[in-house]
Amino acid sequence: MFKIIRKQTLNPTVVLMDIEAPFVARKAEPGQFIMLRINESGERIPLTVADYDREKGIVTIIYQIVGKTTRALSEMSEGDALLDFVGPLGTASHLEGYKKVAVVGGGLGTAIAYPQAKKLHALGAEVHAITGFRNKELIILEKEMGNVSDKLVVATDDGSNGNKGFVTNVLKQLIDEGNKYDLVIAIGPLVMMRAVSNLTREYGIKTIVSMNSIMIDGTGMCGGCRLTVGGETKFACVDGPDFDGHLIDFDEAMRRQGMYKNQERQSEDKHACRLGGVTNA
């Protein structure tokens, strides 16, 4: 069992949890992820390692409430325990050797981009962080991102924080102002990562994205998370989740991500009914 040590609500739908998982904490690196299962009837879901404390044996996860499992997780409290928590999985990001990097986070993707920015900063790179949210209420990790970057721009779609625009607009502006990035890291919804990749392709800037495929085991034994990268089939759980954004077939990835839309709705409806005390199962 893996105990929830700390729980913090970052915005109305995003929650942070520190989980006691000493073996995962010992080895975790930015770019890697874990799979967790809440209880006996639960599914396995992948979540990125947002932070870790090797000494205390703690792994931080940050997740958005999007369906049954993440909702059930958000209803758990400090002191409760998860049944299964396995990792670190995936290939760690290669962050060495870069001088000036733009780290772009969209929504929850900011939490996944944070450990990368932190590590790049620690390695001595000049880090420009660009994060984007729908509105002011949804902004997360502003202080944390600020601490590990040389420049931070927080944009909102509706301009409610006084800085209207999409991350792609901000990135384009920074590039056009003469910032020479030798790497762009983009993490967020698939549409956002595709937009960033399309932009940087024009400028010929190397771009890494973190793919969020549907996963079951997370160890390379089923291929549920497969993607087409540069014309070849890759497994996001072992070959990634980081890939060259200019080589990803984003249309295919988006399609595959929607494969269980109907079932996901059915599962969440059932969960909601149980919570409401209605039994129609």
């Binding site: 599914e43 396995r44 079951i216 085991d217 599962s267």
Partner: peptide, 27 residues
């Protein structure tokens, strides 16, 4: 969409009890 490896199909069904969905969470 709709193409599985046998490993994925069987893992969902056997290990994750997807045949009991939605009583089990894996579809």
């Amino acid at each position: 969409n709709g193409v599985y490896s046998a490993n994925e199909f069987l893992t969902r069904i056997n290990l994750m009890s997807a045949y009991k969905f939605p009583d089990a969470d894996t579809p």
